[in-house]
């Protein structure tokens, strides 16, 4: 699973609204994301750190909590599953 690069959200779901519309994972372990201007909430991921261990990706969130997500990548599609069971997918740009 190679996270580095730019990703655009493809999921359209109620639970997925809190996740950003685009995210960039950088080689130095930091990420930067962009929220959807039409969203009713500030994105859970805005700026922070990420780390990967097997199929778990840990991301620091907008209130600085670090959350573990189950993640997988297949055919340029990256899928995260959060602790509440919400699944959100991104496609590589």
């Amino acid at each position: 699973m190679n996270l580095i690069g730019n990703w655009q959200k493809t999921t359209v779901s109620e639970c997925g609204k809190k996740y950003p519309s685009a995210i960039q994972f950088k080689p130095n372990g930091l990420y930067e994301a962009q929220g959807d201007p039409k969203a009713a909430v500030h994105p859970t991921w805005d700026v922070g750190t990420f780390s990967q261990q097997h199929d778990t990706v840990s991301l620091s969130t907008s209130n600085d909590a670090v959350i573990d997500y189950q993640a997988s990548e297949e055919a340029d599609t990256l899928t995260f599953r959060d602790p509440e069971g919400c699944t959100v997918t991104y496609r590589r740009l």
Binding site: N63, D64, A65
Partner: peptide, 9 residues
């Protein structure tokens, strides 16, 4: 638990 340094919980 949820962060190394600080949190607005």
């Amino acid at each position: 638990d949820s962060t190394p340094r600080g949190i607005m919980y």
